[in-house]
Nucleic acid binder design. Sequence first.
DNA 1: TGAAAACAATGATATTTGTCATATCTTTTT
DNA 2: AAAAAGATATGACAAATATCATTGTTTTCA
Lengths: 245, 245
Amino acid sequence: MEELVNNDRVKSRSACDCGTCPIRFMNLFHSLPPEALEPFNRSKLVNFYKKGQLLFYEGSKPLGVYCINSGRVKLYKTGEDGKQHILRIYGSGEILGMASIFAEREYTSSAEAIEDSVICFIEKSGFFPFLSRYPNLALEVIRNLSQEVMTEEEQIRVLALKTADQRLAELLLMLKETFGRPENSHVVLSLPLSRKEMAEMIGTTPETVIRLLKQFERKGLVEIRGRRIVILDTEGLIVASALEV
Amino acid sequence: MEELVNNDRVKSRSACDCGTCPIRFMNLFHSLPPEALEPFNRSKLVNFYKKGQLLFYEGSKPLGVYCINSGRVKLYKTGEDGKQHILRIYGSGEILGMASIFAEREYTSSAEAIEDSVICFIEKSGFFPFLSRYPNLALEVIRNLSQEVMTEEEQIRVLALKTADQRLAELLLMLKETFGRPENSHVVLSLPLSRKEMAEMIGTTPETVIRLLKQFERKGLVEIRGRRIVILDTEGLIVASALEV
DNA sequence: TGAAAACAATGATATTTGTCATATCTTTTT
DNA sequence: AAAAAGATATGACAAATATCATTGTTTTCA
């Protein structure tokens, strides 16, 4: 396996083969027939990112999309004063940066690995030609982007219409769906986010998150085991996400 | 011209012809060649909406997209307590509801005409088949959706990271870009939004908008002529949208 | 392993923003 | 033209949330 170290990040071509990649069937590239994967395979790069490393940053030029093999990546925006807002956390099988390459603008967000991750980089040039050749791929891209639009509109609703405690309840429910691991009769969040990161996901401060989490714990909705959070009462969280206190 | 009244809304087929429609060249349907417009023309409906009429509402099923010929439409979401948030205002030439038909879910927002409007409804069935036949159309849809994703991500940044006065300054700048009409050395907003609507665009209350507008007026940034707003100092608004007071 | 750094927790306080009540002004309707 | 409805404006007050300071507690890493 040819490997080259660059920028503190290990790159390699053909470290894995798209044809047999189990991840491919989880995302929009599943629509590509096997014979289309040959040049696809050649134009892609497998990168290994350590926790904390950047995939790209706001202001730089999009050159392709990122397919997350393993690990997790946060996509976030930075405000004038340096405060950050996390738009979304991407996990295994998900494609990152699709909209950016089609909007033909510089990145307006940054992406950072929040776990050690293996991520394939697929060049624009090894991907655009397939769009007109395989209408199904184009349709998959359209569906993918449409989903993203709907999800973001929901985020806007939550940010604009809900209070901090409702937003935190929403966040916990979302984390449960995406990163929940059943344990006895309850669910443990397998993704240990810091209070700061949680705050950056719901547009508030770490202090507020801490206080509200404690409030939820007193109400028996969650249990706090240090950085790990256990969801005890999903129904209660749903109520908390909708109702005023 | 065959016309049929239905639901207080005047419908007509072939009231206008896509082949000669000047609006088409403003949006993603410009990529369709003339010969593709024949069936397209047949499957579309021209509707006349009065101010305040709904195009569709949250929870209903998307059956096609809306092409705004003239007039303006607000797309908004409603919270549990009835409060609303306006996601975007669509104007002449814009396509509404693209993501919804591809995400194959019920509408998660409602759309309402805020001016008397002429709007073409294009059925899904008279539009989907063209996607695989005309790759350029698919690519246009992709570009359109990507733009939408980026715009919404910016909205999220503003909502999550900025204070009410910064958001109002942003809103005024955006309204200036989209609805500004030069007059002498300044710019008048040609779209008379109510304070409530402005509040619903930036996630705050009408009272806060009123107070902040007055504050901006005292600083010489805008002039308030009843419902009409005059932008006096764009630079000042840019500063106000970024800086703490 | 031990020191340093980062993070969590908590209290005191300030600020921002929302809520409610009310008055005034505009527009629409009858 | 008068009445009603709706929108704007303003003040007093309450609530939510941010900020700042401080103290433990983890985690990191040299």
